[in-house]
Amino acid sequence: MLGTGLLQGLAVTAKNFAGSFHDPKRLTTVEYPEKKSVIPEAFRNFPFLVSENAEDPMGTLRCVACQICEKECPPQCIYIEKSKDKKPDASGKMQIYPAVFRIDSSVCMNCQICVEVCPFDAIKMDHVYEIATSERFETLLLDRHDLAKPNSYFHQIRPLEAAEVDGRLTAERKAAEEKAKAAALAKAALAAKPAAPAPAAPPKPPEQA
């Protein structure tokens, strides 16, 4: 019969309309701000700098001011100035740190290229999107105090990625420690070698390791 397709479509619409009042499955609207849609882990919206702990965010930044992200950023919205002195990083090695790290969030296009090229896993993408403001010049230029967030926050928003990063960094640190230990052992053995054979005939020949 002519018009059955139309009636079927209208029946679906009526079911959705009536159902949206009492059935949560039929209600498509996510009632922001009371309910927020679930943000997937890979959502990217403005970068943040990872610091190892929350008590000393400026002192434990992973960033070593290598300026790779500054060069790779397509709209060039990152500005970095290296520090003149060095601070120990999480593995104890003395590293320079960024004295100035600014991101212009009115230009940033959330492409994640800075995250992809960072060799130190120091900059990651955040999930925060409620950043509307009426003051452009004061609020939209973020410096390192606004950008630094602790590793615990990183675990909270991106658990899988943070776990992978932490695992990799601890493995790298362990490998570096073992290498340093082995190097120290070899050095000690090398130093012990010339001291062992004495000029006069000793009572017992020394054991060569």
């Binding site: 400026m58 060039q76 990152i78 004295a99 991101i103 105090h145």
Partner: peptide, 28 residues
């Protein structure tokens, strides 16, 4: 006039638009 993160030739253009003021945040 408003170039908070200038690079390359933009540094010169930003300087021409407004004279540079001593930047650099104090070391925390």
């Amino acid at each position: 006039e408003w170039e908070p993160t200038p690079h390359g030739d933009l540094v010169e253009k930003a300087k021409r638009a407004r004279p540079p003021v001593k930047g650099g945040e104090p070391v925390a």
